[in-house]
Amino acid sequence: MTYLAKSPWIIHYDASSCNGCDIEILACLTPMYDVERFGIINTGNPKHADIFVVTGSINEANREVIQNIYNQMPDPKVVVAVGICACSGGVFRECYNVAGGIDKLIPVDVYVPGCAARPESIIDGIVTALGILEEKRTKNVHSPQVTDNGRAEHPKRHAKGGAE
């Protein structure tokens, strides 16, 4: 284990989550669950971060933001999708403004299920991510620059009637 895996810094972004998973991620940082004992620190700056934790699914307004954050993070980097909405869209998958899980836009390494995901499973997901982070570091993996090719895979929608 190297120093990197001993103190990973995470960045959290709320895509179109309902807050349920977000407050559970914050709960992980506070005394009850206290992930800082593993050296995990929550940062606000993408360029400081090793692990990208995303909650909620992609929608029309936030896809650019997610891409930006992902592209700004230095290698090696790992993406953790927290909650069923980030994994697949969850109960909101049929909403007109939800394009689906985060993996439609950026490569996801760890999926944490649950609605809302429990702090225990979030910690488990991040610890799993540490192994992947270490592997990526030793193999010197370069993550791709993401552009919005997700839009091509965007499920086709049909709208009838109404205003133009």
Binding site: A61, N97, P155, H158, G162
Partner: peptide
């Protein structure tokens, strides 16, 4: 609101995979 479909409530929407 930036939405995938313009004026979503004025139209009938069917999404693939429904």
């Amino acid at each position: 609101y930036k939405t995938a479909i313009k004026h979503p409530f004025s139209v009938t929407i069917t999404k693939e995979g429904d």
